[in-house]
């Protein structure tokens, strides 16, 4: 069985000349199907860039990206639009919902855009899982941050994409709402076999994943399977020390 998403020797370079910034330096990654993968790393490590590249939101400078059987690199805008419509789901940190639509309309929006009807049984399951039953007719402005994020999760799930990309989905939430969302993501992987890639800088959030990838300076530097929060924190500390010592080396030069 092929990977749900794949990056092969991906380089991403912004700008040129003196202002050149290398965000990714030859990243190779296979996102396993039916698994919850977390990508961690300090600010500027390239974790968000990696996710954007994997999801086809950003183009790669070199290398190749694929989602399922679809080669993302080199797709036209129309191709990318179709990819996002059919194979990818998104959960952003904020501004996930259209203020003019009700929660229910927001959830079914991706299906409506691609002209599909929601699978009734699956839709009910999703709604039940996120626990929004009585709030479906409300507009985003009438929902709390946690509820809004649950609507966003439901929206990503309802079209059963190949991969859901979540970019710091709990970054704007208090710890309880955050735990709700993470638990919900975890369940959709365990119970429904959904593939999820989540970018986070929160060790606790990462501990919900099956696998944590650590990025530093545009490279994958480590990974942990079945992590605990402590293990993740330890890893981060060791990476920080590494980064600090590297800085020293640079200064020494």
């Amino acid at each position: 069985m092929s990977a749900a998403a794949r990056a092969v020797d991906v380089w991403k370079v912004y700008g040129s000349g003196e202002a050149q910034v290398i965000a990714l330096r030859g990243v190779n990654l296979e996102v396993e199907r039916g698994k919850f993968t977390a990508i961690m790393g300090p600010s500027g490590s390239g974790k968000s860039t990696l996710m954007h590249c994997l999801a086809g939101l950003d183009s790669v400078t070199r290398g190749e990206v694929a989602v399922g059987d679809t080669r993302v690199t080199g797709l036209s805008d129309a191709g990318l639009t179709r990819l996002r419509r059919e194979k990818v789901g998104f959960i952003f940190q904020q501004f996930n919902l259209l203020p003019t639509l009700t929660a229910e309309e927001n959830i079914t929006l991706p299906l409506a855009i691609s002209g599909r009807k929601p699978d009734k049984a699956w839709y009910d399951t999703v709604i039940q899982t996120v626990g929004l039953g009585d709030r479906l007719g409300h507009r985003p402005s009438q929902l709390s941050g946690g509820q809004q994020q649950r609507v966003a999760c439901a929206r990503a799930l309802v079209s059963r994409p190949e991969v859901i990309f979540a970019d710091e989905p709990t970054g704007n939430l208090d710890s309880r709402s955050g735990a709700d969302i993470l638990g919900f993501l975890r369940r959709s992987v365990s119970e429904f076999g959904q593939t999820i890639v989540m970018v986070t800088h929160d060790a606790n959030a990462a501990s919900y994943a099956d696998r944590v990838i650590f990025l530093a300076d545009g490279r994958i530097v480590d990974e942990i399977e079945n992590p605990t929060a402590e293990a993740v924190l330890d890893k981060i500390k060791s990476l920080d020390t590494l980064a600090v010592s590297e800085d020293r080396v640079e200064v020494a030069e």
Binding site: L57, D77, F95, S114
Partner: peptide, 16 residues
């Protein structure tokens, strides 16, 4: 801008 970006992210095409 943000909303339009979101719509595009979840699959709204340019013509749409």
């Amino acid at each position: 801008t943000r909303e339009i970006g979101l719509l595009r992210a979840i699959g709204l095409g340019r013509m749409a």
